[in-house]
């Protein structure tokens, strides 16, 4: 999965779950402060991402995903490992 594909996929999920404008979804943005995705909605994002990208994101790892870029790299790595 290319970085562009994962980013576009995440943007789609963030729009669906939290109403985030896809053009706001760039790697440096933080989920909580910049995109206003609270911790509960973040769980929804993670579950949707697991399904969309066919990866597992354990709850303990979710805490390390502060920015969109963190999530994109994590999903890319997890995708390779899978």
């Amino acid at each position: 999965m290319s970085q562009t594909d994962v980013l576009a996929g995440l943007a789609e999920i963030l729009e669906e779950v939290a109403g985030v404008d896809p053009s706001d979804v760039t790697p440096e943005k933080t989920f909580i402060d910049d995109l206003d995705v609270d911790s509960l909605s973040m769980v929804e994002v993670v579950v949707a991402a697991e399904e969309k990208f066919g990866v597992k994101i354990p709850d303990d790892d979710v805490k390390t995903l502060k920015t969109v870029g963190d999530a994109v790299s994590y999903i890319q790595r997890a995708g390779v490992a899978a």
Partner: peptide
């Protein structure tokens, strides 16, 4: 269980 919405309790 993984598909249960995290908003379910509130």
């Amino acid at each position: 269980a993984r598909k249960v919405t995290p908003h379910v309790v509130p």
